[in-house]
Amino acid sequence: MLVLVLIGVVVLAAAGCVCVVWAQRGGPRWVRAAASVTLAAGEVVRRSNRRRGLNRTTGNGDG
């Protein structure tokens, strides 16, 4: 069951990346909407990692 959930997450992430690239090239409205959702979700994950101190690109040698 866990494997199916992980596969679903990977498929959704890949589809989101495809939508972002397609939207950059002027895709239909639904693709631009899906790309916006994908980019917003990425920003949420990025901000949550910063809050928890998981930013590994500090450059101070601790990473």
Rank of each mutant, 00 (worst) to 15 (best):
M1Q: 11
M1H: 12
M1Y: 09
L2I: 11
L2Y: 08
L2D: 13
V3Y: 09
L4Q: 13
V5A: 11
V5E: 12
V5G: 05
L6A: 07
L6N: 05
I7N: 06
G8K: 03
G8S: 05
G8N: 04
V9S: 10
V9M: 07
V9F: 06
V9I: 11
V9C: 09
V9T: 06
V9L: 12
V11G: 00
V11R: 04
V11A: 06
V11Y: 02
V11D: 02
L12E: 06
A13D: 05
A13P: 00
A13E: 03
A14R: 05
A15L: 14
G16H: 01
G16R: 00
G16N: 00
C17A: 14
C17H: 10
C17L: 15
V18W: 00
V20C: 01
V21S: 11
V21C: 08
V21F: 04
W22H: 04
R25K: 13
G26F: 01
G26C: 00
G26D: 02
P28Q: 06
P28M: 04
P28N: 07
P28G: 03
P28F: 04
R29V: 05
R29N: 09
W30T: 09
W30R: 13
W30F: 08
W30K: 09
W30Y: 12
V31W: 01
V31L: 07
V31N: 00
A33C: 07
A34R: 02
A34T: 05
A35R: 01
S36K: 12
S36Y: 04
S36G: 15
V37T: 15
V37G: 09
T38N: 05
T38S: 09
T38P: 00
T38G: 03
L39W: 01
A40E: 03
A40F: 07
A40R: 07
A41N: 05
G42Q: 02
G42E: 01
E43S: 14
V44A: 06
V44R: 04
V45M: 09
V45I: 13
V45Q: 10
V45E: 08
V45K: 11
R46E: 07
R46D: 08
R47A: 09
R47L: 11
R47F: 07
S48E: 09
S48A: 15
N49C: 15
N49K: 15
N49P: 02
R50Q: 13
R50F: 11
R52Q: 14
R52A: 15
G53L: 02
G53C: 04
L54R: 14
L54V: 07
L54I: 06
L54N: 15
N55L: 14
N55F: 13
N55R: 15
R56V: 10
R56P: 04
R56S: 13
T57A: 15
T57V: 14
T58C: 13
T58G: 08
T58P: 05
G59C: 08
N60P: 03
G61V: 05
D62H: 14
D62G: 14
G63F: 10
G63E: 10
G63C: 15
